[in-house]
Amino acid sequence: MDALLEIQKLTKDFMLHDLNRRISGCRNVSLSVRAGEFVGITGRSGSGKSTILRSVYRTNLPQQGSILYDSRLFGVLDLLEASERQMIQLRRFEIGYISQFLNIPPRTTAFTAVVQSALDAFDVRDGGQKGTVPVSPFTADDKMGHGNRSLLSSGEPRDIERATREARRLLEHFELAEELWDLYPLTFSGGEKLRLNIAAAMVKQPRLLLLDEPTASLDRDSKLKVRTLIERMKDQGCTMLGIFHDFEFMEGVCDREFNMQDGFIDG
């Protein structure tokens, strides 16, 4: 397979049984993402952008088409046909999803959330059976001290130490202010939540990252920062498929972009 992700003739309608209505999500959409590429999808609200992204993550169940993904765990597979167990594994080890909304268990501090996220992904990376162990692209830093361990899995102390180290690096790298690390993220600002989401997703070193309008609720300055963050993720070799509704933001960051209108891809 040439590309990391190949979406073919994807069609998704939402059936609302009680209202007897069929709402169109996306129609006959085909696009591909090569390894290391950042592909952007733009379009107005309701044009079907999210439907595509959520179909890749299997939050949506499309009626037609295929989504081929070249996975490390299972080889090439159609994400629409993959078992739920396979999807859980892929979400845990390979495919990340970032949106502006918090996706962190309640009563978990920002720091613990990132450490837990790292620990969840250690299994396979260290197991040595599947794929290779990626070398962290971040610089070493041995300072520790943060972390409410109440919710941590009982990983090997060595793993917890390593996860703690990586969490610290990522939170610093994506510039979440240190005084927030030991707080519950529910009260964070939009930009802070986003940084935390990015750190929690990136600490797993995903092969494919789905960005669901990460800039939607941010002001101009924060958007520029997100752009810098995306550039950093790209530098680290992360493959990304993102949706945005502002054109300008995408320019210069995306390798390729598609525009959606009424469920179809333009041109």
Binding site: F14, R54, R58, T59, N60, L61, E84
Partner: peptide, 17 residues
């Protein structure tokens, strides 16, 4: 039967909806 987020965000069956 499905992934929890799919069940909650794209429920297929009338009753789940």
């Amino acid at each position: 039967q499905g992934l929890t987020d799919q069940i909650l965000e794209d429920p297929q069956h009338r009753h789940t909806q």
